[in-house]
């Protein structure tokens, strides 16, 4: 399956006129690209991903493209699939978030934020 086919089979994905994804914020492009790479590295089939995302989208609202938060739900679904694949425990992610938060607070404004480990 090519990326193009994968995009077409992704539920309600906002696309531009050339069939490429559009984003409203940089983090959305990042989580999108991570999902593509996780799939390419063999973690899950794209059909599995489409199903997981569909489930998450069905949870609230009408799920239309215009509804704010498409990528918020994408992020929820991505965390869920990582958990179900045993890749990410909830505790692990919580610790990493705290570590990033601490790193940001320790970083002077304008400097790159780096995780010291």
């Amino acid at each position: 399956m090519t990326l193009h086919d994968a995009l077409k089979s992704t539920p309600r994905l906002p696309l531009d006129e050339d069939g490429g994804p559009v984003f409203e914020a940089p983090w959305q492009a990042r989580v999108f690209a991570m999902t593509v790479q996780a799939h390419e590295s063999g973690m899950f089939e794209w059909t599995e991903w489409a199903e997981a995302l569909g489930k998450e989208l069905a949870k609230d609202g009408d799920g239309s493209v215009e509804t704010p938060g498409y990528y918020d739900r994408w992020l929820n679904a991505f965390e869920t699939i990582l958990r179900s694949k045993g890749v990410a425990g909830a505790g692990q992610l919580r610790e990493l978030r705290q570590a990033w938060d601490a790193a940001a607070r320790a970083t002077p404004h304008g400097e790159p934020i780096e995780l010291k480990r």
Partner: peptide
């Protein structure tokens, strides 16, 4: 100091984890 929003923290946490595990 710098600040990251909750959503940025979630995305960075995922990126670190997936990089460590060799998926990305």
């Amino acid at each position: 100091h710098s600040e990251l929003s909750d959503i940025e923290l979630r995305v960075r946490a995922l990126e670190t984890l997936l990089t460590d595990k060799g998926y990305i």
